[in-house]
């Protein structure tokens, strides 16, 4: 018994120390850094200031923030449009097929997403697989120039984030009681109405979880627009990187990350609130 208790204490303490040292402490350092001044010779001057936040109220930052938001909203909508039918069909397959399909979704995670982005290059490039296929089929006569455009980075983002939409949707739809749809049909609802009024509302938690998991990372996955989009625009991730490396302005880079963290926390807060209300309605 004694050793069991000891084990518990040790295990909890290790996790606690781990989180404190590697998650909480760095975060506090970033918060502190965001209130310091940029130094000339050193990284920081120990003068408290809010200038790093007031500096953010400028057209460049707002433009970049807005553009990142637009890109990630488009990514989320596309992921939902592709992921929902996918999860819907998946949930109705036989158990064997279902497991096989889930396995296929998870396999790509065994390879780094950076490497998979390079794989997309070989598909989309001027002499790549897609163009060769279309040319051989005589569907086009000139190669398409897709790589290094916004479309290419959109393709990369949707591809990378789609599993994060599919998995939570599948988790809610798998538990869905399909007899509810039969009941709705018996009571005179057509297929579409049964879907909109029964399936969608009940799977809403899955939709929201999927949207959160796609929307937030899409704002900061800077390497995909860099590799596939030709680095012709700046997203929030690049902006933070630039301030730390090119500008050597760690305080400003820190304040941008804090604003982003705050924005994400806000979205999660809204989600929690929504979830809570939802439960009350059901009860």
């Amino acid at each position: 018994m004694m050793s069991n208790r000891l084990f518990k204490i040790i295990a909890i303490n290790i996790i606690f120390i781990w989180l404190a040292v590697l998650a909480l402490l760095p975060f506090i350092m970033v918060v502190v850094a965001s209130f310091l001044q940029q130094g000339d010779e050193n990284l920081f001057n120990w003068h408290l200031t809010v200038i790093n936040y007031t500096q953010l109220i400028n057209p460049i930052f707002l433009h970049i923030f807005w553009r990142s938001l637009v890109v990630s909203v488009i990514t989320t909508i596309l992921c939902l449009a592709l992921g929902y039918p996918f999860a819907y069909i998946l949930a109705q397959l036989s158990e064997k097929l279902r497991l096989a399909c889930l396995f296929l979704i998870i396999i790509p995670f065994w390879t780094s997403s950076l490497i998979r982005s390079y794989a997309i290059i070989t598909i989309l490039k001027t002499q790549g697989l897609l163009n060769q296929l279309l040319l051989t089929l005589h569907l086009i006569h000139q190669p398409l120039h897709i790589l290094y455009t916004q479309y290419a980075s959109q393709v990369g983002l949707v591809y990378s984030l789609l599993p994060f939409m599919v998995l939570p949707l599948y988790a809610t739809l798998e538990k869905f009681d399909w007899r509810l749809v039969d009941a709705a049909r018996d009571l005179g609802a057509n297929r579409l109405r049964a879907f909109w009024q029964i399936v969608v509302p009940i799977s809403a938690p899955g939709i929201i979880a999927g949207v959160m998991l796609v929307l937030l990372p899409a704002m900061t996955l800077f390497y995909i627009p860099e590799i596939l989009g030709g680095a012709k625009s700046i997203l929030l991730g690049n902006l933070i990187k630039n301030q730390f490396l090119e500008g050597q302005n760690w305080p400003l880079g820190s304040s941008i990350s804090i604003v982003l963290t705050f924005f994400m926390a806000l979205l999660i807060g809204v989600y929690w609130k929504f979830n809570k209300n939802k439960k009350q309605v059901l009860i």
């Binding site: 940029q38 000339d40 460049i60 433009h63 970049i64 553009r67 680095a231 012709k232 625009s233 700046i234 690049n238 902006l239 630039n242 301030q243 090119e246 500008g247 050597q248 302005n249």
Partner: peptide
């Protein structure tokens, strides 16, 4: 540093 920051400002403007 100041000139570097000025370049960075125009670099970001150029990219957007």
């Amino acid at each position: 540093k100041a000139t570097q920051a000025l370049y960075l400002h125009y670099w970001e403007l150029l990219k957007i």
